[in-house]
Design a binder for these strands. Sequence first.
DNA 1: TTGTACGCGTTATCAT
DNA 2: ATGATAACGCGTACAA
Lengths: 337, 337
Amino acid sequence: MAEITIKYLAEKLNLAPSTVSRALNDSHEISSGTKEKVMALAKELNFQPNPYARSLREQKSKTIGVIIPERINNFFSQVIDGMEAVTKAHGYHLLVYNSNEDIEQEKTILSLLVGGRVDAIVMSISGQNQKGEHLKVLKNRAIPIVFFDRIPYDFPTTKLITNDYQAGYEGTVHLINKGCKKIIFLVLSKEVSIGKERMRGYLDALKSHNLPFDESWIVACGHSEIENIAHLEKVFYKIDRPDGVLASVEKLALATYRALAKTNIKMPEQVRMVSFSNMKIADLLCPPLSTISQPAIEIGVECANLLMKRLTKKGQPDLEDKIVTIPSVFTERESSR
Amino acid sequence: MAEITIKYLAEKLNLAPSTVSRALNDSHEISSGTKEKVMALAKELNFQPNPYARSLREQKSKTIGVIIPERINNFFSQVIDGMEAVTKAHGYHLLVYNSNEDIEQEKTILSLLVGGRVDAIVMSISGQNQKGEHLKVLKNRAIPIVFFDRIPYDFPTTKLITNDYQAGYEGTVHLINKGCKKIIFLVLSKEVSIGKERMRGYLDALKSHNLPFDESWIVACGHSEIENIAHLEKVFYKIDRPDGVLASVEKLALATYRALAKTNIKMPEQVRMVSFSNMKIADLLCPPLSTISQPAIEIGVECANLLMKRLTKKGQPDLEDKIVTIPSVFTERESSR
DNA sequence: TTGTACGCGTTATCAT
DNA sequence: ATGATAACGCGTACAA
């Protein structure tokens, strides 16, 4: 690890460590002469204060823990990019963990983090279960936490989501306007908050347009791509097959493309699709995919801003228990034309 | 930050802090009775040792710094996933930074890291300049570092890459076998190591098949998507336009799709393409893209293994100055059929 | 088997 | 304006 310390600089300069420390922190009670000398040597030797000694002393780590359910996903990458842009400016670091959609891993990661390793946490919880019981490790700790996208129901803190209900509603209406009568809804897990909200929008859209609805139109998928494709294939082989698809998650839209490729069903002629997705290349698919995309970078920026305000300013209150909604963007493409 | 400390546990149990410390570390010089008592209370209160106190004491952070030039990129996400899988098992944490393809940012991040914040670094350097002069902050430090994919030339340590030369050669031969006579090579920057190697393979393939070559067939692009598309459009508007494309980076293949969409040129009928890419949905593009994909997870795992061995075992020598090559995988699809 | 004392590198408090 | 000292929480050498 490090070699050059304040003590070392102090010896070299015949000063006390405390003086060097103050000089480095530009204290006003140090003569400009010594300040310059100290700064010069520090720069020459490329001195970096030991972050852990400092953390121990100041009781803060200048580090934010980020927990996401999946790393190979543009949405989460963009969110983290957004966060990093603002935390970097405040001298904060990002410890990033992938929970792999696994509650047990989330629990393990959380217990690792509450020991003081991070000053705050940003998290999108796994799709397995949204009850948030596994979050109770946090209950008695004072550590600020912000949830985004996939949020727990009963955890009192600030959460950031997109207007999932409205987007689900409008996506469905779009399909209805294109003539779809039997629109299915693809969801990863009925437990997940965003799935539920998007589904609510979907259901309300059907109802307000007096379309029939059958319980079987809600297609619950899993995390296995192969099983999802097989499952969807069956859905499309039914005599009374759907003519519209609203996918609540990008990977299910992709599974639909692959399932359709195994049939003779044409998109958009025989079935139209709209999907929640942050893919950059939706326009390059066959056919180009109509998307509802989330302002991911903005979400990341907003999460970080909330935390930076809470952490760097004095006398800040705890994070409010509220849900902040950021609008998503609908883009019509061939898949639903 | 944390509240429950060893001292606190010691008071509760009427023991000395050192005893508690030893019990928690399962020292053999502690009676099983006290051990159990200590463990029980620690578990009950969900005690987590303060990582920074420990780091300060032990002079190691159990943290690896990861620097990538781009976060919204499957390849890098996969590499990090691979790394995390092994570091997690060793109790190590990952501090991830995006240099945004910017040398200055790389420099800043590096100087942040050498202060002892991390025990080792894994890095893929930005495309701006591969000379690696900005890496000299590391020279006098003993910190182990591993480079992957985009590596510097003259930095003595272990580097991991894929068989870029061979893959470039074979991709080109594939296009030649399909009948292409005028194959252009798209590269982000002629400075980048991987670009150079892939280009070398491309050039050698042309030569060994006695195909003509023109300097203008090497198309150097930039980081601006819009400019790249405009540039490529011009390339395809030439009378003597290319009938084959080897893209050394995924984003340039995508730019090619978009450029072609603005013309009437058909792929693969009039121009065929092969690209280096780790996209999961290459099969869903119009037309599906022939890819040379890198074993990203394996690369991450390998990087981490190297470092874990170096860091967790005693008396390990410094990282060898060598280049490890892992083969990439070619998949033929419609774009080059 | 357990307790005491010290130091990791930093900064804040109290002296000078 | 500068120096001495203590403390953050942990682990270990030494003492008992």
